[in-house]
Amino acid sequence: MDLRILPLAVTMMAGPQIVAAVILVTTARPVRVCLAFLLGVAAATTAGVALALGLCGLLGQAVPQGSPADPGSAASVVQLVLVGLLALVAVKNVVRRRTVEPPKWLGSLMEAGPRKALTTGFLIILFMPSDIVVMLTVGVNLEQHEAGLAAAVPFIAATVLIAALPLLLYLLLGERARRAMPRLREWLTTHSWVINVAACLIFIVLILTP
């Protein structure tokens, strides 16, 4: 797998995903709940990449994937389409920034237990449109390099590590983190559009970087 794919792990957790991770740190049993969430994230990322790799393998038999360096390849066409879609999403978030509201299910996580955290971690990755795009991109990259699922382990680990950052800060900083997390939660909830725009821009840069 191309190491340039690794930064896509940032976009995997950008948006409601990282907000959910922060909210879970502020629950009554943060360590157990967050560990369950991370397990869900790891399982969903592994399953999603495996499905994407399998799909790309099937499509590759009918449509040559080409090389990332080949501007006429099918992969490059897909990349340009993704750039256009991401640019539209970024503009939409900026235009609607004053009216965008966080998903209602985020508020329910305040009382989440390990089971709900596990389910949330799994679903928020496997069915989030932006994450589906990222995992398909990883699948295409693996197929182009004729690599198996094992080659995606660094990407999966990086995604889980980013998801674990709120918990790690909570464990390392102690009381300071306990005081800061609720404020961070509120800021992320009210400024979710900033995170979404940043994720789109990061993704665009990574796609266009030769």
Rank of each mutant, 00 (worst) to 15 (best):
M1K: 09
L3N: 05
I5T: 12
P7R: 07
A9M: 03
A14T: 05
A14P: 00
P16V: 06
P16R: 02
Q17V: 07
I18Q: 10
V19S: 15
A21Y: 12
T27D: 11
A28K: 11
A28N: 06
R29I: 09
R29T: 13
R29Y: 13
V31D: 13
V31P: 07
V31H: 14
C34E: 06
C34W: 03
L35Q: 01
V41E: 02
A42D: 05
A43H: 02
T45R: 00
L53I: 05
C56D: 14
G57V: 08
L59N: 05
A62H: 15
Q65C: 08
S67M: 07
P68A: 10
P68I: 09
P68E: 08
D70F: 08
A74L: 06
V77Y: 11
L80P: 00
L80A: 12
V81N: 03
V83K: 04
G84K: 14
L85C: 12
A87Y: 04
L88I: 10
L88G: 08
V89Q: 14
K92M: 04
K92F: 04
N93C: 13
V94G: 00
V95L: 13
R96K: 14
R98E: 12
E101P: 02
P102K: 00
P102T: 00
G107I: 04
S108H: 11
L109H: 06
M110F: 06
M110Y: 03
L118K: 06
L118S: 07
T119K: 10
T119V: 15
T119A: 15
F122H: 06
L123W: 10
L126W: 06
L126Q: 04
F127H: 02
M128E: 08
P129L: 02
P129F: 02
S130L: 04
V133E: 03
V134F: 01
M135C: 12
V140M: 12
V140S: 09
Q144M: 09
H145S: 10
H145N: 08
E146I: 01
A147L: 12
L149Q: 00
L149E: 02
L149D: 01
A150L: 13
A150F: 08
A150E: 09
P154M: 00
P154S: 00
A157T: 06
A157E: 04
A158V: 06
T159I: 00
A163V: 01
Y170F: 15
Y170G: 04
L173Q: 15
R176W: 11
A177W: 03
A180M: 10
P182S: 00
L184W: 08
L184D: 01
R185I: 03
E186K: 13
T190Y: 07
S192F: 05
V194P: 00
I195L: 15
C200M: 14
C200Q: 13
C200Y: 12
C200F: 12
I202L: 15
I202R: 02
P210V: 04
